[in-house]
Design a protein around this nucleic acid. Sequence first.
DNA 1: TAGTTCCATAACCAATAGGTTATTCAATGA
DNA 2: TCATTGAATAACCTATTGGTTATGGAACTA
Lengths: 122, 122
Amino acid sequence: MRRSDRLDATFAALADPTRRAILARLANGEASVTDLAKPFKMSQPAISKHLRVLERAGLISRGRDAQRRPRRIEGKPLAEATGWLEQYRRIWEGNFQRLDELLDELKIQQPNDDTPTPTGDD
Amino acid sequence: MRRSDRLDATFAALADPTRRAILARLANGEASVTDLAKPFKMSQPAISKHLRVLERAGLISRGRDAQRRPRRIEGKPLAEATGWLEQYRRIWEGNFQRLDELLDELKIQQPNDDTPTPTGDD
DNA sequence: TAGTTCCATAACCAATAGGTTATTCAATGA
DNA sequence: TCATTGAATAACCTATTGGTTATGGAACTA
């Protein structure tokens, strides 16, 4: 699978609150499907479908223990997603916003100018 | 909007490669819709739809410059998503995997045992 | 052996997503 | 004023998503 497709699958898997809750549960140890389903109001097959989404994204893997098929969390896709987001760290840490504020202050002479700051292109 | 809903919207927005490419483009400065559409084979309305998704997730905002409606990237949702993923840092940095490997080595006596390591629960 | 537990799968349904073409609207510029 | 440019919107289509109920199979347990 290409990196882009993996990111597609990872972010799509993380876009559902049920699946994020399942990952949170798995963060402190593997768990059976029944255990994972317990906190939710939905049916067991619905949970199995969510697990399939997580598994196809590589976020969890499946073990075996008698009739049980315990899931465990896998770190790699989370690492890749985090890595992708890191690209934007300088943005979300506010450097750009501060630059904009600086530019705004430098042209505080002209009143009533509601056009945005020119480009911000570095 | 609740935090969970914001994460839903953010991750869903990031799950599409076109939208990720748009964000990458906006990372080095604001751009008009036409400019943003240029690299893609799809129609302008398709791009506008993607922009709407990004905007509703708060990942971009809309300026105005004559007929143009330049988009700029917004950092907060990216920060929030990154923050959520940070929860799992100890997992995706491999600590758990190394623990598993250790446990595997400790019971390397029994041959042909394909059951997974017991719990991993901390 | 017979019942039970755990889970997967199939079939179905409504809602959403991602694309299209056609159209309209707003602002610019000749 | 009128054509052009930039972008949004509507109507439509197909595929996917997220849920349901019903069913079945595999592995334990009495």
